[in-house]
Design a protein around this nucleic acid. Structure first.
Lengths: 408, 408
DNA sequence: TTCTTTATTTTCAAGGGTTGAAAAATTAGA
DNA sequence: TCTAATTTTTCAACCCTTGAAAATAAAGAA
């Protein structure tokens, strides 16, 4: 009797020559994308591939429209002039949708990462509503930007979301709220757009975007933001680190003190109780109302008072800074990043938070000579999640150019 | 003028058919190692490779002596009987050395992970001495177990070490104390053993060993131990996670409280000040002397008092348990592991630590339904680092069987 | 102007890898 | 003794990279 064994989920798939082609196509495309117009010789030297291979690979990429010749360039000396090839950014369009409470935002980008203008449109609810409504909202947002022009390949639709639909199916509260189910619902509503649909967590997407904005290669980068809630994510070697249940990098409920305020989560001394917008506003004497409108006005008022040097406001931020510093101390002890990016309100507040952060990290700096940790404000503002979703979409094309069809 | 571009450190190397062969050889070897004697058909079904490929790959592995036919096995029905192939564990020997203060321990293992008896021998110092002495000690430890028998391939010599020689060159305090320099010194002293030499951190090696002992696949596992000092490591998908400066997982200096005792590192409220052996002994009224002999006696005495229900001793452990629980709360918030293994003294103390740990983690369990975190004692005791070093050595062979030479 | 030199790109045979189909091997049952 | 069934091996076909040789194209020299 023949025993049929299926490969386990963690068993790698067999490798064949197609995988080799994929990897080398990706290598060449990334090189051209990163180094601008360049000759085949330069690509060969930069990638370690041989001239002959580069010729074939570039020809393949030209067939797929991802790369084009942009004329010759005599390099000073004699000899056959170099024929420069360059990325064709417009060949691939990536679309990202971010669903918030009351409105959705949609944005596209080309392969070079140049984004189109973001478009906002009202929706029927938020990420916490029925999943069918969610799919409707996403589909109409995508419809609003219209179909891609002929000859433009639609690479991927990426949905940035926070709420009960999670990035990985195994973390979803129920099968109906799994990423794959939402993706299928959206795809069904967009029959004219036959492209893969991904769901990413919005905080993780924002982290990825800020990581790319740093323009560092590799390393470990942590991202912490505070808006409605405190969230965060960890980027390791350019990829989101999920952890076992998709909760890695979520610093909101890190304990800062053994006996701090009681958090909504039930624990005591969570970071959230020190640095959330609500906590800071209350500590500054500006709390009381929960309406979004009032909160916005209160934030403006807080900013005025901070700039005016009002002692109560300064004390509130100082308290938050020390708490955040302690959290970063924990973060550093566990994951040893070299960079922390602060997003949301934390980016605006950083000047007033920094003394507390530095005080907490000073000891560590002294004890470990090799230790270094840069703490900087995020540069992308509220659109960070959208930009990250677009970057995730582009990454798929760069990693597997063979998925873009050949022929004009 | 031709511009020569070298590939950047993070740029992947080009892929070729040799890489394909390597990957598939590894796939087949891992399958045979994990599933015991099995027929080629079974390997094909389990790996996704085609019969023809499996035949060729198995023949290659037989050539290298890593696998052998172990006779036929009629599978009940009619048809040509299956010819079972099995791992040949004795084909490869891996050696690990652990250097401690005053003595070194050396152990070997075959490819199946069955270890030889550990051997201890006195050395001229510890990991903090001159690197030349370190190399001498390691070389004489390896000499003590003798050369491998003819026909046995020596896969790798792995050195488990804690101290100023770090696992990665970039984390070393000076070039003279880099892992590659030590490896070269050791290799020079062992001219008869032409095999690669690796240096791994002993806490990280112990973490890897405990991970393998759990027999889980993938996931995120954290390891924390307390002996002379508090250390730890993080295993992600079966590999050590280093972080940016090789300090990831080092929980010793996580802040547990904003205003705790002052630590030697300069910060306040570090985990070390609550759970280190010294701190617990002092808290239990058994501190005072720093001699190793006295500490050992004090630990035995502490154990007696704990079992007798002595209130001061119980209080000391309770304090440590709550601190450790808070640290695990931080750990969970940052990296979201599904398993924490406690090593060293912590494994012995776990029964008395658990109430504090559980109290701290209870809130988190309630807030995140999907959250789960098992906390278990390590099962490998003091030899964990050696076992981990051996596992790291075996992993190299399993990942690249082509490095083992062909021919008997 | 023509020839030589130089640098880039393409072409081509060779070698290694996987694959699918056919052939060979081997045993149980008719 | 023959047939069916199952496993293993063989073999031609195809894909990919590689190294060397050929083709291409411009600058400088005669």
């Amino acid at each position: 009797m023949a025993t049929m064994h299926n490969r386990g989920v963690n068993t790698p798939a067999p490798t064949d020559s197609a995988a080799v082609r994929r990897a080398n196509l990706s290598l060449v495309l990334r090189y051209v994308a990163a180094h601008g117009p360049c000759a085949r010789t330069e690509v060969a030297a930069g990638t370690g591939l041989v001239h002959a291979s580069v010729s074939a690979l570039v020809a393949d990429l030209i067939d797929r429209g991802l790369v084009a010749e942009v004329g010759a360039a005599s390099s000073g000396g004699r000899g056959r002039p170099r024929r420069l090839v360059s990325l064709v950014p417009a060949r691939v369009r990536t679309t990202a949708v971010h669903v918030a409470w009351g409105y959705s935002t949609v944005m596209t980008s080309d392969l070079a990462g140049v984004p189109g203008l973001p478009r906002q449109l009202p929706n029927s609810g938020g990420p916490f509503g029925p999943v069918e409504n969610l799919a409707d909202d996403i589909a109409s947002a995508v419809d609003a930007v219209g179909p891609p022009e002929p000859g433009v390949h639609h690479g991927r639709l990426v949905i940035a979301l926070s709420g009960p639909v999670t990035e990985r199916d195994q973390d979803a509260p129920s099968p109906a709220r799994s990423a794959s189910h939402l993706a299928r619902l959206v795809a069904d509503r967009l029959p004219g757009l036959p492209c893969p649909v991904d769901v990413v967590n919005d905080a993780k997407a924002a982290a990825l975007a800020e990581y790319h904005a740093l323009a560092v290669r590799g390393g470990t980068v942590a991202y912490v933001k505070s808006d409605a809630g405190v969230a965060g994510a960890l980027i390791v070697n350019g990829r989101v680190f999920h952890g076992s249940h998709g909760l890695a990098g979520e610093l909101g409920h890190i304990p800062v003190s053994l006996d701090g305020p009681v958090c909504r989560c039930g624990a005591t001394g969570c970071l959230t109780t020190y640095v959330s917008t609500r906590a800071v506003l209350e500590e500054a004497g500006l709390g009381g109302s929960t309406s979004p409108h009032h909160a916005s006005a209160a934030l403006t008022e807080l900013d005025h008072r901070l700039r005016a040097g009002e002692p109560v406001a300064l004390a509130a931020l100082n308290r938050a800074g020390h708490a955040l510093g302690a959290a970063l101390q924990s973060l550093t002890g566990v994951t040893d990043p070299d960079h922390v990016v602060l997003g949301g309100r934390l980016a605006d507040w950083l000047p007033w938070l920094r003394p507390g952060i530095d005080a907490r990290l000073a000891a560590r700096r002294g004890a470990f000579p090799a230790f270094s940790l840069a703490v900087t404000p995020g540069t992308l503002g509220a659109d960070a999640a959208l930009h990250g979703a677009l970057a995730a979409g582009r990454e798929h094309v760069l990693a597997d150019p063979a998925a873009v069809p050949k022929g004009s």
